[in-house]
Computed example of a mutant assay.
Amino acid sequence: MREARRRAVPILRAAGIAAAGLEARLLLEGSVGTRALDPERALDAAAAATFAGYLQRRAAGEPVWRILGEREFWGLTFRLSPATLEPRPDSETIVEAALAQLGARRGENLSLLDLGTGTGCLLVALLSECPQARGLGVDLSEEACRTAAGNAMLNGVAARASFRKGSWAEGLAGAFDLIVSNPPYIPTAEIATLSTEVREHDPLLALDGGADGLGPYRIFARSLPALLAPGGFIVFEIGAGQKNDVVAIMAAGGLELRGSRHDLGGHERALIFAPA
């Protein structure tokens, strides 16, 4: 296996992949189905063929986690589908902000709502940390809802999670203690400038936030205040430089900024809102 990895690294480097060594190892692990690689062991024919196919796909620009079909988020495993955004470490900031805001309430019988749930990573991560909570994930894609339901089962929270196809909060009723969302926030004109990995492999539905990237937030400002329980709050992910605009939009809906959290790169990534 050491030799297989050694030969793979220059192939990936030639394709412009900076972390060629790491990705070669990840793809090799995926090919043999284990992280416990024996460097001295030779690949069997089936694993060698799988590995060669993985390398070809990665060199063509397909992200490594798409090839492997799953990615870790919040220490949990989430399976991907073409209809779901690939969970990214920066989005863990939403979970961190929500848990910090909940504080001691994490042990209560909370009602959670995740809009644009995708893989279900936000809702499943929160349910894993809030053992008495129940949650609803909503997504415009039926395929995404199926993927999220599978991930809830995979991570042991299926009994407390439900998923439904829908457009944001349309048709919802009830009172939620926490609403989270990582909505599409990239302006339409900027989609073409994204990396190949994102532009050609993440679903457009999860990327395109309209002409200025703020379309979903305007919908949230109109629809979410009525869905909050007393003491409830909202946590959104935002793009770089969008804070002031999002705060103004939420203020028009009667919501005020209660805090924010920075991602690994030092950018304000998660904003917390509650009724003014």
Rank of each mutant, 00 (worst) to 15 (best):
A276W: 10
S260C: 11
R199K: 15
E96V: 01
I179G: 03
D90V: 07
Q242H: 12
T147Q: 13
P87A: 11
A45H: 03
E170Q: 15
N244A: 15
A47D: 15
R105D: 07
R79N: 12
E170N: 01
A152L: 11
L113D: 08
E268A: 01
R13L: 11
R218D: 09
Q242K: 06
G120S: 12
E29S: 15
L172E: 09
A59V: 02
P183I: 09
G137N: 12
L85H: 05
A144H: 10
E96S: 01
L227I: 04
L228T: 09
A46I: 00
I238R: 01
A98W: 04
A175F: 02
V9D: 05
G75N: 08
N109F: 06
L68C: 11
L227C: 05
M250F: 14
I191C: 04
G120W: 11
T34M: 13
T193N: 08
I17W: 06
S195F: 12
A251E: 10
G118L: 12
P187K: 02
L85K: 03
A152N: 09
R261P: 12
T188Y: 04
V246K: 00
S91R: 07
L178V: 10
F51R: 13
G135F: 11
E108H: 14
R2Y: 05
F78M: 04
D114Y: 01
E256S: 07
R164A: 15
L85C: 02
T188I: 14
A229N: 08
R106C: 15
V157Q: 09
L227Q: 05
L228E: 10
V95K: 09
R57A: 15
V64K: 03
V124P: 04
R57W: 07
P89Y: 10
V9G: 04
G118P: 13
R269Y: 15
I11R: 10
R88F: 12
A42N: 08
L127T: 04
